[in-house]
Design a protein around this nucleic acid. Structure first.
Lengths: 222, 222
DNA sequence: CATAAATTCAAACTGTTGTTTGAATCGTTT
DNA sequence: AAACGATTCAAACAACAGTTTGAATTTATG
């Protein structure tokens, strides 16, 4: 055999999962496209849920150590890293996933988006259990870069940033199509990341609002 | 009968859809909870897909005219509205959905998030077809507030903003739970909106980057 | 080469999904 | 009260889901 059945399933599954979502992709579709037997999924992975985790794990096991490593470099080279630095530190590891597999970067981010919005917790739990320390470190560093913000405020803004990132990636194919049609603009995954980073950096680092808009909020509830 | 079957279905369906997503909510669950016959969904709405659209339409038909009206007020009172003004104009209409139904605001935004991330285009098409003009107006006004930005740049940033909003709302229940557990913080839908608005306003209005981070991007691809 | 383990395979199982059907029931109108 | 259309109902339908099974086949081992 050219490629082992197990990795053949993983390759086909990750492509279909990224394209159509987890619950919309049946094991029969996967095994047919992969040209393997239906039962082989349960034989090699145990269940569909575990297959999904295996697909993501194959990326996360590569990505997370690299992110950690980039953060090491950052604290070595910059005394007090700012928010954009921290986010930029994650770019290179993300793009390096293209070396892992063709279209690795966009595939992974698509999968991440699917996982966040589709799964009812089991994937989020899997990620925080297996890769918690790196995530904690990012939170701590952002908090250090924005000491005037309460920890809870940092928490919220980082989740907004994740939301922006993950959601934009999940619909990036649709968006790049529209951009190409309406603005004659060819944007790839790198271009999208390059546009998101300033956006979320500005959002996370924006000073606390003391303005008047919250008055509107209170006034108009009725 | 106290409540007509049709609205009883709509009420139950929207709650379950918001809570578990569209594809994860079966018609049998809906009709059982609503205490109506299974066939009544197809009788009154034709199909599940049309039921989903009906659930969203009931909100959008109220929300969109109000947004339009708020934008009218804005252009009357402010000569050159800025980005935060435009976003704030959408807050009151959103919160007014609580008058429509209990928890109307959070339910609607949850539904919007589900619709965006779950449906493969049919919901997005439905929305842009039925409520396109208002959306166009928002795009135009933001572009007017940020004339130095290319239209395509405005396009991207607004979609990032939508992504932030919709995604955060779709996972707001999980987030508020974590916030309550980890930070002893009770945050309701108003609190989340109040935190998102400064975030996306800063993101959308951030000046174009000429910095050096894109160099890292190019250097590290390999 | 023979034996044992690992893997593949076709088929069936169990459960759920959205949808349809045709009779029974209800509400209104004549 | 009779007749009619609108609605409800239990039941079945067809398609698809993930999973299991046990025999056939391949691969590796002694």
């Amino acid at each position: 055999m050219a490629v082992k059945t197990k990795t053949q399933i993983l390759n086909t599954a990750e492509a279909l999962f990224a394209q159509q979502g987890f619950s919309n992709t049946s094991l029969r579709t996967i095994t047919t496209c992969a040209d393997v037997n239906l039962a082989s999924v349960n034989y090699h992975f145990g269940s569909k849920k575990l297959l999904i985790q295996a697909v993501l794990q194959r990326y996360l096991d590569v990505l997370m150590p690299k992110v950690n490593q980039q953060l090491d470099h950052l604290v070595e080279s910059v005394a007090e890293p700012e928010v954009p630095h921290i986010f930029e530190a994650m770019v290179e590891p993300l793009l390096s996933l293209n070396n892992l597999r063709p279209n690795g970067t966009s595939t992974f981010v698509l999968l991440l988006g699917r996982g966040y919005s589709e799964s009812q917790g089991h994937l989020r739990r899997f990620i925080t259990e297996h890769y918690g320390p790196v995530l904690m470190r990012v939170v701590a560093m952002v908090h250090q870069a924005l000491p005037e913000l309460a920890p809870s405020e940092v928490f919220w803004r980082l989740h907004f940033a994740i939301g922006t990132f993950v959601f934009s990636m999940a619909s990036s194919s649709a968006l790049t199509e529209i951009a190409a049609a309406d603005y004659d603009q060819d944007v790839d995954i790198k271009g999208v990341i390059g546009r998101i980073l300033p956006f979320i950096s500005a959002g996370v680092a924006t000073p606390l609002q003391t303005g008047n808009w919250s008055l509107d909020l209170k006034r108009d509830i009725a």
